[in-house]
Simulated assay, not measured.
Amino acid sequence: MVRLPLTPDEVRRGERLGALLRRARGNRSMLEVALDAGVSPETLRKIESGRVATPAFPTVAGIAAVLGLSLDEIWREVNEPWEEARPAGRPDGAALVASS
């Protein structure tokens, strides 16, 4: 099966998802979160770095559960228009996830 190239919007959503998961992971190790979620550390690394912009739903659901994120919250934040998703003065969008 041939995969079509990702659209610019898909790439941006993948980057936002990765940033959101990195922030939500906080000081927990990538290995710990990945194993708890039932995914490989390499898969989590690729998602967090944006290299896998469209991960499978069960993968996202597993990681979200381990990090205490709701899928609704992830969907809303990853799909917001780009300018609205980035708080003023924060080019990295760091305020998207409240610290626990």
Rank of each mutant, 00 (worst) to 15 (best):
residue 73 E to D: 08
residue 1 M to L: 11
residue 6 L to Y: 09
residue 23 R to C: 02
residue 12 R to N: 10
residue 99 S to P: 02
residue 12 R to G: 06
residue 75 W to T: 09
residue 2 V to K: 11
residue 21 L to R: 10
residue 25 R to W: 13
residue 11 V to R: 14
residue 21 L to M: 13
residue 28 R to Q: 14
residue 37 A to E: 03
residue 3 R to T: 07
residue 47 I to R: 05
residue 45 R to T: 07
residue 91 P to R: 03
residue 45 R to S: 15
residue 16 R to P: 04
residue 29 S to V: 06
residue 36 D to W: 06
residue 26 G to F: 08
residue 90 R to A: 13
residue 84 E to V: 11
residue 91 P to G: 02
residue 72 D to G: 10
residue 40 S to I: 10
residue 39 V to A: 00
residue 7 T to P: 08
residue 34 A to I: 10
residue 77 E to L: 15
residue 35 L to H: 09
residue 64 A to H: 02
residue 34 A to Q: 03
residue 32 E to G: 08
residue 1 M to Y: 12
residue 32 E to S: 14
residue 58 P to R: 00
residue 97 V to E: 01
residue 80 E to K: 15
residue 91 P to L: 07
residue 15 E to W: 09
residue 54 T to C: 02
residue 93 G to F: 14
residue 48 E to M: 10
residue 60 V to E: 01
residue 94 A to C: 13
residue 26 G to T: 08
residue 26 G to L: 07
residue 48 E to A: 11
residue 39 V to T: 00
residue 84 E to Q: 10
residue 88 A to G: 07
residue 40 S to N: 00
residue 75 W to Q: 06
residue 22 R to Q: 09
residue 59 T to E: 01
residue 49 S to P: 05
residue 24 A to R: 15
residue 14 G to P: 00
residue 13 R to K: 15
residue 41 P to A: 08
residue 78 V to W: 05
residue 85 A to C: 07
residue 48 E to K: 05
residue 32 E to F: 13
residue 33 V to G: 00
residue 53 A to W: 09
residue 59 T to K: 03
residue 91 P to F: 13
residue 42 E to L: 11
residue 84 E to R: 15
residue 41 P to F: 13
residue 19 A to R: 15
residue 24 A to V: 09
residue 19 A to H: 11
residue 57 F to L: 04
residue 95 A to L: 14
residue 95 A to R: 14
residue 42 E to T: 12
residue 79 N to H: 15
residue 82 W to E: 12
residue 81 P to K: 09
residue 87 P to E: 13
residue 24 A to G: 01
residue 50 G to T: 13
residue 34 A to T: 12
residue 68 G to I: 08
residue 75 W to L: 09
residue 9 D to W: 09
residue 90 R to E: 06
residue 79 N to L: 12
residue 32 E to H: 14
residue 83 E to G: 06
residue 20 L to Q: 04
residue 2 V to M: 10
residue 7 T to R: 11
residue 78 V to T: 07
residue 7 T to Q: 05
residue 61 A to Y: 01
residue 24 A to L: 04
residue 67 L to W: 09
residue 37 A to F: 03
residue 23 R to I: 10
residue 21 L to F: 15
residue 28 R to T: 05
residue 41 P to K: 12
residue 39 V to Q: 03
residue 92 D to A: 13
residue 94 A to V: 11
residue 45 R to V: 01
residue 25 R to H: 04
residue 50 G to H: 02
residue 30 M to G: 08
residue 95 A to F: 11
residue 6 L to I: 02
